[in-house]
Nucleic acid binder design. Structure first.
Lengths: 156, 156
DNA sequence: GGATCGTTACTCGGATAATAAGTGTCCGAGTGAACGAGG
DNA sequence: CCTCGTTCACTCGGACACTTATTATCCGAGTAACGATCC
């Protein structure tokens, strides 16, 4: 029950990219957060494959958001990096062993799987309710010129 | 973001134990579900350490629920087997790098950690709302004598 | 006959290998921009 | 002065080792029941 550590990096990068007005290279994002650039690239590639960010190659290239920040939810980022499959997978052990339940009585998922599914959907709903734009606004808070200095550092 | 596979076994065992009227050995539970008895023992030990089930040693020993089935929630079992720590852990990368946020501005968790925490609490609340007794009742459904044949197989 | 002691078989518990996933790193393919030569 | 071709440096992308967590297994410590023995 442990989430991939790269999810945190990907979310921070998404917030930073929402403030940038031009493509930002992965190396720049890495030294901004003081993390391994090679490994951060892996997370950004996952975001790119999911269609959340767009990659621009060549000179003055980098990554930029493919959609407006208020159209990208936290769940989108989490699923892109960590996988979209639910945490719990029912192996149907009720159909095994000497007292196996007959298949005709297993048309619906077992109560355990249903309970897990409900909890999983609640978790996803909570993450779907927050967008990258919401995170960015909370990060800045009252000092609105935080984005200005960030842009200046990104372009320098 | 993957849950330990033993959680499913532990939950099924909890439901079975709620129907038993005497201690059930781990080997019996293992062959009932057709799983590795040695590995299932590890999960049962975790439940025992958490105080959910009680172990009786010696001849005619085994495991039995330490509390009434309606007093054990699904969350209790999940936390006992898979750990109680939340899936997301904030590493405070906002305090690192050239544009590090000063510590005096980090008195509260960052928005990302807050969002994850809210989602985690929603997930836990959904699991806390279901007890082992609820699962047992749903498993039996209309054929109420399912527990009778189960007890007969456990004692035989 | 009853109680006691020793034996025995059965139980859990933690310590120990094998496996899969996650983490971290590297170098090559591709691309856009900049620079210089020519018109 | 403008346009075109070439070169070049910079970018991403996927393929390759290493570490950590999960999965699976084994054998030893402890204990309750059973049976034989003694009072």
């Amino acid at each position: 029950m442990k989430m991939s550590g790269g999810v945190e990096w990907a979310l921070h990068c998404a917030v930073v990219l929402s403030a940038a007005d031009r493509p930002v290279p992965a190396v720049r994002l890495a030294e901004l957060h003081d993390v391994s650039s090679s490994y951060l690239a892996k997370q950004l590639q996952a975001l790119s494959r999911a269609g959340l960010i767009r990659a621009a190659q060549g000179h003055a290239g980098g990554y930029e958001l493919a959609r407006p920040a208020d159209g990208i939810t936290v769940l989108d980022v989490v699923e892109a990096v960590d996988g979209a499959q639910p945490a719990f997978t029912c192996t149907e052990i009720r159909q095994r062993g000497p007292l196996a339940t007959p298949p005709e009585a297993c048309l619906r998922p077992c109560p355990i799987a249903r309970t897990m599914s409900v909890a999983d959907q609640a978790w996803r709903a909570a993450l779907r309710a927050v967008t990258v734009a919401d995170l960015a606004q909370e990060v800045t808070g009252d000092n609105t010129d935080a984005f200005t200095v960030l842009r200046g550092w990104l372009t320098a």
